[in-house]
């Protein structure tokens, strides 16, 4: 696996660094706002710890390609280039939010970015990904669907039926499992007969992609670039990225306070496998005198996030007209 930064240009790597830091800071700010009761929704699943997976994978797509994910969706929206302001406004349930304040944290989408959304029924979006990919085949176009999911999404019927149909119909889908080893509170060993999830590809006669280090954005990008190229010309691929969630299942997850083993595991990932540190070290090793540029990005991103908070706070709430609008296409 090429982790040599010299094979990639500095501009690209700095862009990924910017995105990863943006997601981290955005999520930290969401966490604060939740505890300040400014984000009041009951569900808030932060992407902290996963950043390199989303950024590396989405960077492998073209503009015409499509992205879907589950409920841990903030980072994917940001990686796809959706502006932080309407995303933060959605967190606060504002009319200016990407989903008009009607979707909330788990239902971010931007049609203009071919970001088809975060979906909160575990694995439900896999079936939609299959249908979107079918449309590409039907029209004879070559766009690809990237469908991200957690390890918890691999054990219900949606996973089986969607992956099988994608293989039977030979659809251009990259199935990407973000394996953080725990689905809500259940460990992977207790939920999956085959915890090496990428091996599931064999059952569907589908191309088995790699099991990559999800904390290394360069590795993720390389693996997904290959997978995307395969899907575009041939058919579905299953890839697994190993990662870790820093903020629990959702912000209300209390198990890390109560369990020493989980706390140690989390500390270990943060200390040794943090995606920001890994990329930073790659950049420092690869490019002399880059510290100042990284510090500048950190500051700029901070301002982007603060601006998004100001925008969201100043935005109006939805109205009665919004409540009753879009139930049906008018």
């Amino acid at each position: 696996m090429a982790t040599n930064t010299r094979s990639l240009d500095k501009v690209t790597l700095l862009d990924w660094y910017r995105q990863i830091v943006l997601i981290r800071q955005f999520e930290n700010r969401c966490d604060e706002l939740y505890h300040e009761k400014k984000i009041t929704g009951v569900y808030l699943h932060l992407y902290s710890g996963h950043e390199a997976v989303g950024v590396g994978a989405v960077a492998a797509l073209g503009e015409g390609d499509h992205v879907l994910t589950g409920y841990r969706d903030h980072g994917i929206a940001l990686a796809r280039g959706v502006d932080a302001k309407p995303l933060m406004a959605e967190m606060m349930g504002k009319r200016t939010g990407v989903s008009g304040g009607k979707g909330g944290s788990m239902h971010l989408a931007s049609r203009a970015h071919n970001f088809w959304g975060g979906y909160a029924i575990v694995a439900g979006h896999l079936s939609l990904a299959t249908g979107i990919a079918f449309k590409e085949r039907y029209m004879g176009t070559e766009n690809v669907v990237l469908c991200l999911m957690g390890d918890g999404a691999t054990n219900n019927g949606y996973f089986h039926e969607s992956l099988n149909l994608s293989a039977v119909w030979n659809l251009p889908v990259v199935w990407l499992i973000e394996n953080n080893f725990i689905g809500m509170g259940t460990r992977i060993e207790d939920s999956s007969g085959q915890p090496e999830l990428v091996k599931r590809a064999v059952a569907y006669g589908m191309k088995q992609g790699p099991r990559v280090d999800g904390q290394n954005v360069i590795e993720v990008h390389e693996a997904i670039s290959e997978a995307v190229a395969y899907a575009r010309k041939k058919g579905p691929v299953l890839v697994e990225a190993l990662t870790y969630r820093y903020k629990g299942h959702g912000v209300s997850d209390k198990q890390y306070d109560a369990r020493e083993d989980l706390k140690r595991e989390l500390d270990d990932w943060q200390a040794h496998k943090d995606p920001i540190n890994i990329l930073k070290n790659q950049l420092l090793a690869g490019f002399d005198g880059i510290e100042a540029e990284l510090a500048k990005i950190d500051t700029e991103v901070h301002e982007i996030v603060e601006e998004s908070v100001r925008y969201a706070e100043a935005s109006p709430v939805p109205t009665y007209e919004d409540l009753i609008r879009h139930i049906y296409v008018e």
Binding site: S127, A129, G131, I132, F134, K135, Y138, S162, L165
Partner: peptide, 24 residues
């Protein structure tokens, strides 16, 4: 399109295809 006996993804894939602009 013949499908496997997969009622969940028959409906779900049809939703996705419809969202993408087809009329399944």
């Amino acid at each position: 399109k013949d499908t496997p006996i997969s009622e969940l993804v028959i409906a779900g894939a049809a939703v996705g295809a419809a969202m993408a602009g087809l009329r399944p």
